[in-house]
């Protein structure tokens, strides 16, 4: 409870110097002043406690794309933003890929602001109709991606996919998680985000060399 000195009704009254006023008005006035002080005091007591820290549950801090070839060799690409929407730049890393190889791919989204880290992938899978992951290779990059999963309506989701590399080249693979895309818009089910709309929850551009 804080003391509020300037609201002391005695000081307050003498400052105002209203002594020439009739007693009845004085009383009403004094009563109002006192009531207000109580009201102030009451509310200032109510939440003096330290506010509770909020660790956002929905934030995605980490995206990891895992690619496994037929021999069981694992390649990963990841984007990590330790402070969510905060000022820290995200850290992006990507392994080189082998030429003319077929990879079984999967993607994982985590919230590492929580301890232990929360797996957002499960939420995306649960709301499969409202999500889609897009994999967009740059023009000079010999890579093609095929969806391996579907949502309840038979439209692609993109948590599981197949990535096939061609001859040696280097370029960018952009991975986008869209929330509430328009899945029946032209090209969307083929993995083209042009007409998908919705809002972007994750966007990562991985610079990759195919060796």
């Amino acid at each position: 409870m804080k003391t509020i000195q300037f609201l002391n009704p005695q000081n307050f009254m003498s400052n105002l110097n209203l002594k020439q006023l009739p007693m009845k008005t004085m009383k009403t006035f004094q009563l109002l002043a006192i009531l207000t002080v109580f009201a102030f005091a009451f509310t200032s007591c109510s939440d003096d406690d330290a506010p509770q820290v909020i660790n956002e549950e929905e934030v995605i801090t980490t995206m990891t794309v895992t690619l496994v070839d037929n021999n069981g060799t694992v390649k990963t690409m990841s984007k990590v933003d330790a402070d969510g929407d905060g000022p820290l730049d995200p850290i992006i890393s990507a392994d080189d890929l082998d030429a003319n190889t077929t990879y079984t791919g999967s993607v994982e989204f985590l919230n590492q602001l929580e301890d232990p880290a929360e797996d957002i992938t499960a939420e995306v899978a649960e709301e499969d109709e409202e999500h889609q992951v897009f994999y967009v290779p740059s023009s000079n990059f010999n890579v093609s991606v095929q969806y391996n999963d579907q949502d309840a309506n038979g439209n692609p989701l993109g948590l599981d996919f197949t990535l096939t590399t061609g001859d040696a080249s280097s370029g960018t693979l952009t991975v986008i998680l869209r929330h509430e895309p328009i899945k029946d818009a032209a090209g969307v089910s083929e993995g083209d985000p042009t007409n998908a709309g919705g809002e972007t929850d994750v966007e990562a551009a991985f610079e990759v060399d195919i060796l």
Binding site: I4, F6, L7, L16, T36, A39, F40, T43, S44, S46, D47, P51, Q52, I54, E56, E57, E58
Partner: peptide
């Protein structure tokens, strides 16, 4: 003379930083 007391409370149940 005007006296004002104001109290702002941001509900933490939002799960979003204030």
């Amino acid at each position: 003379i005007e006296l004002t007391y104001q109290d702002n409370f941001a509900n933490p149940d939002t799960g979003v930083r204030r």
